[in-house]
């Protein structure tokens, strides 16, 4: 009863790069520069500390340790130099939270109109959390949720509110 439904932890120290390009055409170059395979539609590919998420048919999001950011941007910019493409640093534009624990599903189900049964292990779902945009994917023990930096306090507030002890969604 006294236990929150899930741990809510802000994650910092991540670098993020938005890549816009024709993925059919430039996919190989991006994969090589990013060090990850191109994810399928609405999927995210993770390999150790790096992830590459499918954001839209012509947009990917590379997530990696902040220390590797500058090199990655340089590598991607280089690799796409001859393409029509956009590579931009969006690391500072985001707020990232990990929602973990046995009832992490319940916390997400209170905020996002997303059918979690339909979210594959490597699924990336862009939607909203209450009234603000958010993207979601699975991590061991729960979910990682990213939203906009300016709404970080709001996100923490609604996540913690959704996780209050005793408010699990199991039928009573």
């Amino acid at each position: 009863m006294a236990e929150a439904l899930a741990d809510i932890a802000r994650v910092t120290g991540l670098g993020m790069v938005t890549i816009r390009a024709d993925l059919d055409h430039a996919g190989d170059a991006i994969a090589e520069a990013a060090g990850l395979a191109i994810p399928g539609q609405t999927r995210i590919v993770t390999d150790g500390s790096r992830s590459l998420g499918w954001m839209s048919p012509d947009e990917l999001l590379l997530i990696l340790p902040a220390a590797e950011l500058a090199d990655a941007i340089a590598a991607l910019t280089d690799a796409l130099a001859s393409e029509h493409a956009l590579v931009v640093d969006v690391s500072d534009a985001r707020a990232v939270f990990d929602v973990t624990g046995p009832h992490a599903d319940d916390v997400i189900a209170k905020l996002m109109p997303v059918d979690l049964d339909d979210l594959p292990p490597d699924g990336l779902r862009r939607s909203r959390a209450a009234q603000t945009a958010a993207a979601l994917w699975r991590i061991p023990g729960g979910f990682r949720l990213i939203g906009f930096r300016s709404t970080a306090d709001y996100l923490r507030l609604i996540l913690e509110n959704a996780a209050i002890p005793g408010s699990g969604l199991a039928p009573r």
Binding site: L111, A130, R149, S150, D153, N161
Partner: peptide, 15 residues
Amino acid sequence: AEARGEAFQPLRKTP
């Protein structure tokens, strides 16, 4: 629901 008080709307804050 949660949209009351501080969480009435997403309150966007600058750095």
